[in-house]
Design a protein around this nucleic acid. Structure first.
Lengths: 253, 253
DNA sequence: CGGCTTTTTGAACCCCATCAATATCCGTGG
DNA sequence: CCACGGATATTGATGGGGTTCAAAAAGCCG
């Protein structure tokens, strides 16, 4: 909270898509300079969102899409009996709010898992711009497809895999996403509490804890609270029945 | 296969979006006349697809979206260990192929559940047209949102509901979709075999059969093979924890 | 009618939820 | 600095929902 720190913060708020380190995985990916400038013009950088705060709520009319700039979010869908299901976690560079496409009303509630920042994109402006920016249309389509594919893989996990296998699939999925962002795929901090992860995986917290313990005993991983180290990705891949990043020709980081 | 039968078939092949009874729930919904004509021009009416035949396969490059014109389909996602999960069933008027948006390659295999016909829409042509047809963009967005919301509700069901509750939710969902198409919401034929339905709901066939039996014993439904009659939608709604169509002011058929 | 698939029913087992208790971490204030 | 309290995480014991194995019943088609 010193003065110099404040300056840095202001600087960050001015970051444009072109300068953003996430541009290669986020909406700007594949855009030419002109498209990039136009996209930049309609993006609103929101200030910090603290842990537990809500970005949008089920029932809210949809006005924006949001890209995670820093931090992480969970999307929560509720039944009218109060049961809640986390349908996804969103890391930096990922697009949130597509659940409002159906009838222009958000179905999920989006909650920050840690202090986060987002880029808000007015949906009408994005729509207008997309008519004359083919690169933007293409990237938006790919991000939509990523959301759908993620959901489908999750359905496969919930419908076909056992608890331990689901956890393995999840860890590998996070690993891959973090690697894409330049972080180590073998050692990372999970942004969510056990409680949220258990819900996401359709398990009780206690069961999830047992799955972790079992994997630790089998020397597949090491954990310390939210810190996770993957020790045997091959075995994890076999457990997960999916997502094997093909430990390619000594090309790992 | 008589000559007169052939004539009928040809007639069906000439149906345009404007004449199609599904236009109100399918892609043409909300389009003006000009947009409609342009959409019509790029739609390819495919001939019959027999039960069990594949519309597209996991790994195929995506070239088209498909709308169900008659019949029904299932989307199957496979793990690399051979486990299969049905991620959705598609009825007339619904859009198939969005799973290819991610990287222009289909992730699911789409299989006809009965003899069916589809409208194929070239993705590049649709893309071009959408730049100058705002109504089409809007409707496409809504259909994408419907797919995402469907998947999310399914995740909620698989993660939070018990077998019987999932079945109730499914029956009500089918009921609502059929009602939208002008069929009775209380009595209908399921297009899929028990085997497929069990997989979709993440249950063993035997368990699903028991769920049916239990509902029959409780006078919630009646069944005869694939024919289903809903006797107590209120109770089904309570079971499903969702999707209650609100048995509105004596407005039922 | 005969052979096939589909559906239903029965019995034993297993994964996972639930209840209960302990352990660990973390922030706060004495 | 340590003590305390609350949230978070792990471990144990028990029971239930669902799978699996097995077999019978019912529908379908030639």
């Amino acid at each position: 909270m010193s003065h110099s720190r404040k300056v840095i913060s202001i600087h960050e708020l001015k970051v444009s898509c072109g300068d953003c380190s996430l541009s290669e995985i986020c909406l700007p990916h594949g855009l030419n300079q002109e498209e990039l400038n136009e996209l930049d013009a309609l993006i609103l950088h929101k200030p910090r969102i603290e842990q537990g705060e809500v970005l949008f709520r089920s029932g809210d009319p949809m006005h924006h899409l949001y890209a995670v700039r820093s931090g992480a979010f969970k999307a929560v869908l509720s039944s009218n009996e109060g049961a809640e299901q986390i349908t996804g976690f969103y890391l930096s560079g990922e697009l949130m709010g597509l659940d409002g496409f159906g009838d222009d009303v958000h179905q999920c509630t989006m909650v920050a898992l840690e202090t986060s920042t987002v880029c808000a994109i007015d949906i009408d402006e994005l729509e207008k711009l997309s008519t004359r920016a083919p690169g933007l249309r293409r990237q938006l389509r790919h991000l939509i497809g990523a959301e759908i594919n993620h959901d489908h893989r999750n359905l496969l996990a919930l419908g076909q895999l056992k608890g331990e296998e689901r956890l393995a699939a999840f860890l590998l999925n996070i690993s891959r996403r973090l690697k894409k962002r330049g972080f180590s795929p073998y050692e990372f901090n999970l942004p969510m509490a056990r409680h949220d992860l258990a819900n996401y995986l359709g398990l009780a917290v206690e069961t999830l804890s047992r799955m972790f313990s079992r994997m630790i005993d089998a020397d597949l991983i090491e954990t310390n609270r939210r810190h996770v180290k993957l020790l045997n990705t091959k075995a994890l891949c076999e457990l997960a029945q999916y997502d094997c990043p093909r430990e390619s020709h000594h090309a790992s980081s």
